[in-house]
Design a protein around this nucleic acid. Structure first.
Lengths: 313, 313
DNA sequence: CCCTGCCATACGTTTTTTGTATGTTGCACT
DNA sequence: AGTGCAACATACAAAAAACGTATGGCAGGG
């Protein structure tokens, strides 16, 4: 049963006049007659009463007309649904993220995404950084958010926000009264540092920044997953730490934050996903992530330029 | 969206291997690739991930696969339903009949029809003979049963059962003691006769039979629709009547039935329907009517021959 | 009785689909 | 690392299907 024939039949049944129907279908009348006859042969049933003068629907024709209309409606709905799924307007997406992502990165991304793609179902999972990678590979989640850089040939990343690192000191520390701190002055201090596999991004940034400052940090390594935990350990007095600037909002008793003099070390938080995942929902999500990241970057730029101008005046 | 393409897609999605799918579809692989690509263009959506090595379904492809299967099931069910309606296996039929039809004719017809076409819904309407004709024209009923012959260029008839006429006499009548009656002996009697338009079949038979016997009956015409009523009028003593043999089962006090000597006049009861009605259910019903009629005829033949043989011995 | 409207048939033309041969790419195996 | 293989894409010619024009047949209305 061909859909062209079925469509021809529906129009013919609506018009009850093959010539007019052929006109509506933009074809000549004989081919229409032929197609109708072919459909009748396929079904083994007469669909029209040819009473010489005009045509009438048979009972079977009437049944087919009703069912055919239903089928066309279903086809159209299917086409629309497939198109929307294909363009990422409908679907589901699982996100895994470290708690810090809820500070700056996730809110605008989720807000913009839900605004543009209200019919995509989002599943949010707070988890440890290593779990993000593990569950990306296991396909339990589709996108992760944590501190970059991260290197895995099967995974791709996109930075979203960059923020400077600040030094977290116990408030009893001799340098706690200084307005700014030179990184070199921390050369002899024990550093509260997560293990590389726990927070590869932060670990790399800290060691790199110290290397540029001319020394290798003396680590007090712990199984630390949360920035908050680092701050907590600093408060306990076992060392100093380098944490993202936004942690200043996290005012913990016994800790003071100091900006670093000179070049400002930064950490990036970003999205990470399976390179081989080509789902449309993911693409849509990543495009929103891109928009938000660009917006954030623009804000940083303008913020800096404003700061410069302020300095100039 | 063409059904061929859709079918190709479903097979390809099931196999996840274009070459095997093409094999199942009895076509070469390149045309399959082409058709899939065409379907993707129509929908504006990628249905497969071409990962070099083999293919995978995209989310959109998965949705289409499920919906396409549903559509094919619906199509098949539609085809089956149309075929059954077209062949008269499914449908509805309205019957109108005079009460006498329930004596001999209707029971075997209805039994056989329901046995062969259990899914046809029958609507039974008992009515007066003139209503049968009227409601056939008005399309309130599709088939009627009453006494033939009946002539109407728009209606067609088929006899089903034939039975002899017998004379109904008041039991006080002088001839009531005779074993058989000569029709001529009723020449002077008033005949209880329905009006022609009430029971054209019986009216014609009675007048014809009397004409053959050499006289014209003296009618006591009444608006009579039922054979039972004729018998009732005979019992009241206002005249004699000719009624079908099966009325003997209707033993009314004050009436005796006598067979006619010599040629036996008969009346036919049969089906009547619109000549222009070509519905499959009607055809199916009429074929059953034909079978039953032939069977009844055969029984009458054998019955008569048995009677003859009995007479011979 | 002819005329007109409507569907069916015949046949040449155009479009669509298919098949064969070949190219390209990624994976596996040596 | 090179090679072979499996799998999908591309190119083009052949086959099939659908279409258009011209024409026939039939029924109802002037």
């Amino acid at each position: 049963m061909d859909l062209r024939r079925l469509r021809y039949f529906v129009v013919a049944a609506e018009e009850l006049n093959f010539s007019r129907a052929a006109g509506r279908l933009r074809i000549a009348q004989p081919p229409l007659s032929a197609q109708i006859k072919q459909l009748e042969n396929e079904l083994g049933v007469l669909l029209f009463d040819r009473t010489g003068r005009g045509v009438r629907l048979t009972d079977a024709g009437y049944v087919l007309l009703e069912e055919a209309r239903r089928i066309f409606i279903q086809l159209e709905q299917t086409a629309r649904m497939v198109e929307r799924v294909g363009s990422g307007q409908v679907g589901r997406l699982s996100l895994g993220f470290v708690p810090s992502a809820t500070n700056e990165v996730l809110p605008p991304v989720l807000y913009e995404f839900q605004k543009s793609f209200p019919e995509v179902e989002l599943f949010l999972h707070e988890m440890m950084p290593d779990q993000v990678v593990q569950r990306l590979h296991g396909k339990q989640i589709d996108v992760g958010f944590f501190y970059l850089p991260f290197d895995d040939s099967a995974l791709d990343t996109r930075p979203v926000s960059r923020e400077p690192l600040v030094v977290a000191l116990p408030e009893t520390h001799p340098l706690a009264t200084e307005p700014e701190i030179d990184l070199r002055s921390l050369e002899r201090e024990p550093f509260v540092l997560p293990r590389r596999y726990n927070m590869p991004g932060l670990y790399g940034q800290v060691t790199e920044v110290c290397r540029q400052a001319g020394f290798t940090p003396r680590p007090v390594q712990k199984d630390v997953w949360l920035m908050q935990t680092i701050v907590g350990l600093v408060a306990s007095g076992i060392g100093v730490g380098l944490v993202p600037c936004s942690l200043r909002n996290f005012r913990r008793k016994g800790v003071v934050y100091k900006t670093v003099r000179g070049l400002s070390p930064t950490v990036e938080m970003g999205a990470i996903w399976r390179r081989s995942d080509s789902s449309a929902v993911l693409s849509a999500f990543l495009s929103i992530v891109g928009e938000v990241a660009q917006l954030a970057e623009g804000k940083r730029e303008s913020g800096r330029s404003v700061a410069l101008r302020t300095a100039e005046t």
